[in-house]
Structure formats: C-alpha cells, structure tokens
C-alpha cells in the first residue's frame, strides 16, 4: 500500500496502454488463463502420463456445444444451446454461451466451459476498458482483432486440450451493417458474409441454415431458423441440448442491430417453438 506503483501497478510516468488484456499479460500474467494453466500442467498430470493431454482433458472438462450466427434484415442474430457436458454426463442444462460484450457486440463460445466463460468475461472488460480510457468505443473491426489476439494468447491451453473457439458478431456503425467473425485455434480471424456455426453440433446447424437461409429475413423468420437449426443439431449431436418445453429451457438468442443488443424473450421463443412443433407434427 505504501508503494504507489504496487497499488496502481503501472508506473505513473510511463504511457499507459488502452488494452486491459495487454496490461494483464505484462503486469499481472498470473491473471491470464494461458499463463495459469501453462504454469500448472500437473492438474492433468495423472492422465497426462498415460495418454496425450489433449485427449484426457477433453474428457475431464465440460464442453459448450452448438452456437450459431447469421445475418437478418437489421443486423445479426446470434444464438446458442444451453447444454454443457462432462464426458458422458450432462453438467448443466441452463448454461449461457452467448454474451453481450458491449452496446453493439456479442460473443458466443464453444469449447471448454471454464476458459470459455473466462474469455468472454475478459473480452467484455477489454472493450469496456478501452472505451473508458480512450473515451470512444473500438471500431467493429478493432473489436474482432482484439478477440483474435486473445484467442492467440490462449494457444498454450489448446495444446492441453482446452480449446476455446469464439464466434463474434457486431453491428458496424460506420458501415451500418451487422458483421460475423469466426476464429481458428491459432487466433486466425475470418469474416463470414452470411452465417456461421461452431461446436460439436455445428455441422448439423450449418446444414439447416444453408438450406433455409435467405438475405433480408425478418426477426420472426430469423428466430424460426435459429430454433430449427439448434433443434436439428440437438437431434443429431449428444453434446447439444434442444429446446425443452417441459422444463422451460430454450436457447439463448440475441439480436445485434443498430439499436444495440436485444435478448429474445423466452415467451417469444416458446411461442415460435410451439408453432414449429405443430408444423412438424409429432416429430419434436
């Protein structure tokens, strides 16, 4: 407490940087996920000795499963199922995998649950931090790049089987359009023009979207398509949870558009799901 540089961990005379994540990496590396896990590989030690760490870790850690994003008339819809699994067990029925990260962006993550949630949290702090320090929001492109850096920094974890694959969507105020960015495990950033899905049920969801997608869908049409894609994924993939009207569990869905980020009400999802089920007869 007596040493100001310890209390405010940056020397006051140096130029302070606007990135919270960079600050953590340089001044508080123990607070970044990659460092922590890299320092303590022994947490998987017992299984690491007999089999590759990647295989063992994927059994131990819960995995998020199907998330998707596609464009509609006003911007982007982003959605994710609610199931988390640990090996053959269901770890959580109501997990959130889609997060609002600032006023005009959202992120959905598939992969090991713990590091996923941590990355989502760190990323939203990163955006808020920049906004407060610089007095302006990052551009949509800037946010996507920042997330790429964070995924890249996560690479040591990937080698241990703790994969985190985010899907980032934002409304670009300059271009007046919604945008979708996907990432690979090395932090490579690729922009998608229409839709993308991530996760173990991603392929099924993607096929559904590919079949029914058309540019300029309305909100209602977008909700229907997302529900359809997620329930198809749930039917084919054990790791993905479909809508569960009995317990009232529906996917998380958010619209990202010129008005910001809006979460779709559960009642609206329920109504749309009932319509879809009726159309499909007993098949649900």
């Amino acid at each position: 407490m007596n040493d100001p540089r310890k209390f405010f961990p940056l020397s006051l005379s140096s130029a302070l940087c606007s990135s919270f994540f960079t600050y953590l990496q340089t001044h508080r590396p123990e607070m970044t996920p990659a460092y922590r896990w890299a320092q303590s590989p022994s947490c998987f030690g017992h299984s690491k000795m007999c089999e590759p760490a990647s295989a063992s870790a994927s059994h131990i850690l819960s995995h998020g499963t199907t998330v998707l994003a596609f464009k509609y008339e006003r911007g982007v819809l982003i959605a994710g199922d609610r199931r988390a699994t640990e090996g053959y067990q269901i770890a959580d029925h109501r997990m959130e995998k889609v997060f609002q990260t600032d006023e005009y962006s959202a992120i959905a993550i598939a992969g090991a649950a713990g590091p996923c949630l941590e990355m989502a949290k760190l990323f939203s702090i990163e955006l808020e931090h920049y906004e407060k320090v610089d007095g302006v929001r990052l551009s949509c492109e800037g946010k996507a790049n920042r997330l790429g850096h964070m995924v890249k920094a996560n690479f040591p974890l990937v080698l241990q089987g703790l994969v985190v694959i985010p899907l980032f969507v934002g409304y670009d105020l300059k271009r007046e359009a919604g945008r979708i960015f996907k990432y690979d495990i090395t932090g490579g950033r690729y922009e998608e023009t229409e839709f993308h899905t991530v996760g173990s049920g991603g392929k099924e969801a993607r096929l559904t979207i590919k079949e029914h997608f058309r540019p300029g869908m309305t909100e209602d049409e977008a909700i229907r398509l997302a529900l359809r894609a997620l329930s198809n994924a749930a039917e084919e993939d054990v790791g993905t949870g479909g809508p569960d009207p009995v317990r009232g569990i529906y996917p998380t869905m958010k619209f990202v558009n010129d008005a910001g980020v809006q979460t779709v009400d559960e009642s609206r999802l329920q109504a749309t799901w009932n319509e879809l089920s009726a159309e499909r007869g007993t098949r649900n």
Binding site: F7, F8, P9, L10, L12, L16, F20, Y23, L24, R28, M31, K121, L122, I125, E128, H129, K132, V133
Partner: peptide, 13 residues
Amino acid sequence: KAGIQHADLKGLM
C-alpha cells in the same frame, strides 16, 4: 487511467 486499471483489475479479481 491508473484508476480505471485498478478498478477493472479489482472487479475481475
């Protein structure tokens, strides 16, 4: 800026 850093770090911890 140091204050923002301190606050964000504390909020994260």
